[in-house]
Nucleic acid binder design. Structure first.
Lengths: 132, 132
DNA sequence: AACCTATTCAACAAAACGGTTGAATACGTG
DNA sequence: CACGTATTCAACCGTTTTGTTGAATAGGTT
């Protein structure tokens, strides 16, 4: 898993991790502090933190044997930009009312221009392949 | 996995799925159309679609033996709301400059009010438990 | 030095994920 | 009706994820 967008989205795809982010939005915290309210081991929380860190959502500084975790707000923009881009496009399309029609009979208006759509990598090169 | 937020985030945590959403923002498409550019089987794409559908990001109508997929823009708001909420809070905190200090010595200003943080469910009740 | 605390590393297991192939099912058409 | 196309279901498989426990590392404290 390379790209940051994937990392950020998967990082937030976990309720515990989202809750940690929520709490970190108020104040930095140590691993132990963060682990306290959850019913999982500190090690598990440490792993969650690693995921968040790898995604760029949090950073860790050092304070003696403690490693305070800090929420990095800038990464959020990455997501909102992605979301807004397509949400807007979908909305526009809806407003123009083509929506329902263009599925069945491309009316020249749009239909086939999905070229620009691909987010950098078009063929996500998955594992093997059907005829492989 | 119950809550929609989790479903939506995990749905978008996959590059292929994000690309499908991107393409669907231009026009509705059938499973086969969607599968075409990728190097995976149609069945795989069908599965991806199911994930997107379960998350509420897309809906499927019926047109003879075809099942056109339509992007449901409204779900995006769910995410942006969540994101904005905490990004804003983190930003505010940064601007007040408490940020660095409050980790080491709670200066009465804030530090412990993470109560409101928890997103509905505080204890995400994971699998078993350490001492179980 | 001996010890306690904070955090991570390592090995392991169960479950989820993403893909595959083969067989259904649903529907239009010669 | 036989057939072709579109799509899904089912069983299976390798990899990743999430959690556990036990041991290691880092840094204060007495």
């Amino acid at each position: 898993m390379e790209d940051q967008l994937t990392k950020v989205f998967s990082a937030l795809a976990d309720p515990t991790r989202r809750d940690m982010v929520a709490r970190l939005s108020f104040a930095d915290a140590t691993v132990n502090e963060l682990a306290e309210p959850y019913e999982v081991s500190v090690q598990a929380v440490s792993k969650h933190l690693k995921v968040l860190e790898d995604s760029g959502l949090v950073t860790r500084t050092r304070d003696a044997q403690r490693r305070p975790v800090h929420l990095e707000d800038n990464v959020f923009d990455l997501m909102t930009k992605w979301i807004e881009r397509y949400r807007q496009r979908a909305e526009e399309r809806y407003q123009r009312l083509d929506a329902v029609l263009e599925t069945m009979e491309p009316t020249s208006t749009s239909a086939r221009e999905s070229d620009t759509a691909s987010e950098t990598q078009h063929a996500p090169t998955p594992g093997s392949r059907k005829g492989a």
